[in-house]
Amino acid sequence: MKLATQVKIVWCPGCGNFGILKAFKDAAAELAEVVDLRRMVLVSGVGCHGKIADYLALSSFHTIHGRVPAMLAGIKLANPELIAVGFAGDGDAYNEGLVHLIHAAKKNIDATLIVHDNAVYGLTTGQATATSARGFRGRSTPEGNPEEPLNPVALMLASGASFVARGYAGDASHLKEIIKEAILHRGFAFIDVLQPCVTFNNTWKLYREKVRKMKDTPESIDEAMKLARAEDEIRVGILYREERSTYEDEMRIEPRDADVNALLERMK
């Protein structure tokens, strides 16, 4: 199956999104050996990241800002045979729609969510998001961001996500492996991808210095939490995974023809 579309890519040259697109494409191509890609449905949010839906020849829904996890849940509840993969922005997932993210993790919906975390609102030209560093000078924070950034990986560990990872857009082959594992995971698989935005928050240098690949997945959630919060280095890799029943397993009812007459009879 050809994955590229005719649509011209309009990300800035050097944008971390290219690394994410490549990693996903490579992951999908490799997964095609074991899964039918026609069953894959992508959902993307609104932002630079959201354009990825147009760049992939797979079923997709380019939804509204912040609501990717909710739409993934709706798709899976309707048809659990579909493989649901979401692409969200940090503003999208951690600001506008944070409530959905936490509940998707808590519910353990069987979907993968890849967050393009550039720590900035890209498409609206450079305002601070929930993951922007303290002191970040964006167009709405000319005197520096007064807030401490959110740690999304720690948040997801605390929210009950059954697969939690951090990836780096600058290491597409490592990210590809994480994405493959995430898609094959049954349950909510979350990947926060460190994504430099060359135009509004160029973090290439910082990440090159600080990102470290983890060798193994930590033994316990406490250990995972420690690594998630480590400040000396930024650990990338799979921090946590667990098998747990999914929301669809619990909630979905097999459709059948309801006998409305019988029910009305009982309302007499």
Partner: peptide
């Protein structure tokens, strides 16, 4: 008995968006 999936999501925005997702998938 009715063969229907009934969900109380985290808020109304989720309810509407989940519904759109389900209808997109054919339900």
């Amino acid at each position: 008995e009715l063969g229907i999936t009934v969900v109380q999501p985290e808020n109304e925005i989720a309810a509407a968006v989940m519904a759109i997702g389900s209808a997109f998938a054919g339900a």
